[in-house]
Design a protein around this nucleic acid. Structure first.
Lengths: 257, 257
DNA sequence: CGTCGGGTTGATTTACCTCAAGCAACGTGG
DNA sequence: CCACGTTGCTTGAGGTAAATCAACCCGACG
């Protein structure tokens, strides 16, 4: 809880730092994955369901979404990809993508070859654990998301997703300090994430605003009454805060010396 | 597609075989995880949300569910644990469980120490890849589940989950051959998995039966009209069939020689 | 100045829930 | 062997949360 934000420039490093103290050389190795970054316009795909993986990505800046679409146009957003997230890491064990990843804003990404990743891991075996941790945490978010869609009311869902995003940004050291953060997504996207209609999203949002829990200007959300919002969402703050696992790092996924 | 069922006694091995040809010694190593198996009555917990992990499990026989519960009693089943599934593998990188796992039937499980797993992986580094694959695949199932809850109608959800379970059993070589399989769960549990009420589950189920798509005797489901059911669910059979990734096995997660 | 993507608001419809009752199957103890 | 409670399935009636349909608004942008 005390070590959430460490002032790293890279959200990836900041995020991993929740879990593990990286050495200089490990940090440098990760940085080498992040270095050559280029731009992608919003709406562009990072990967597409059914298509084979060609490389891995790190999202450096901007937002993206993982989603699956049905043939008749219905869409489900599985998860938001925030700065510091990997995209397409599964490509290391699986041939083709099971979901699409689309840029929600103009984004800055680093593309890396799986071979390069392999070399890095070869030299810094502890990083495997770190990546597995990232994957496990992603699954945690998915599970919470599933709980929302299955058993929470629309109002609760909206309240919950705001808190989740706020928390996730905070952990990466991305200016979510003053209970206020940048959320560059349309209500349509939010609807597709929460399994609701845009109209209803809109109503829930204004309802929360009217209740004095949040405030929303275009692209920016401020949490006015944090405990109130948590109550409205019955938000378990625990699930996104991770105490560094001292023992874990020397276990299991570490390669033989 | 051709190598779905190989006749292994162990569902775990059968499942992994979709993805990777295990050597004799790798198979033996996995078997050593599975050997000391003991029984647990239905309703018993394998792990509990918030509690620290103490060991890992393999489910040898019977069904279990992963689930999260809200304080007011609402429950969301995230996933069914079928024979051959690991439980609590995340314990290797994370301190405490983010969801509960409960036995749905009397089950036979193997409990193993993380240390033991560590030794095995030390001796058989390829198995790390196999486990990562298992984790990735689990996430695939979760994602599909999320799509159901968010964007599919009740009828589609029910149809879909039947097909999914049928497929998952089939892949492990668990008598799901004649489009007919054992499904030892109550409609209440199914409701909690699909985010619906028991009453509505019941209605969808009988509707599907009346339409001549499935037949349900107690604990057993028969798929009468497979293509029809697939249409009712718009089921993408692709997402659960995995062609072995020849290249993948020598990549990335393999430890340095 | 028109167009366009996105947000807002109202009216109507509907898919699913809740409540409630009845029933079949099963175990348990007398 | 029969009363019994229990647990799960089934069916009906009425209610409601959220969808859909349909305007209208507004700022951005060419």
């Amino acid at each position: 809880m005390t070590h959430l934000y460490h002032g790293w420039r890279s959200p990836l490093i900041a995020h991993l730092h929740c879990f593990i103290d990286l050495t200089e050389s490990e940090t440098a190795a990760l940085a080498s994955l992040e270095t050559p970054s280029h731009l992608l316009g919003h709406g562009r795909l990072l990967q597409e369901e059914g298509q084979p993986f060609t490389a891995g990505y790190i999202l450096n800046d901007g937002w993206a979404m993982r989603h699956k679409d049905l043939s008749d146009g219905r869409r489900q957003v599985l998860d938001f990809v925030l700065p510091g997230d990997f995209v397409g890491l599964e490509g290391t064990v699986v041939r083709s993508a099971d979901h699409t990843v689309t840029a929600l804003t103009d984004v800055r990404i680093s593309r890396f070859a799986f071979d390069h990743l392999e070399h890095i891991i070869h030299d810094h075996p502890r990083l495997v654990t770190a990546m597995v941790w990232l994957a496990v945490r992603q699954r945690t978010v998915l599970a919470e998301h599933l709980l929302s869609l299955g058993r929470r009311s629309a109002r609760e869902r909206v309240a919950h997703v705001l808190l989740e995003i706020w928390r996730r940004l905070y952990v990466r050291g991305l200016g979510a300090d003053h209970h206020c953060f940048h959320m560059p997504i349309t209500q349509t996207v939010l609807a597709d994430a929460l399994g609701l209609s845009t109209v209803h999203i809109n109503r829930c949002l204004s309802q929360l605003a009217k209740a004095g829990l949040v405030e929303k200007r275009r692209d920016t959300v401020s949490i006015i009454d944090l405990p109130g919002l948590k109550r409205a969402a019955d938000f378990e703050s625990g699930y996104l805060s991770e105490v560094p696992v001292a023992a874990g790092m020397s276990r299991t996924y570490e390669s033989p010396r």
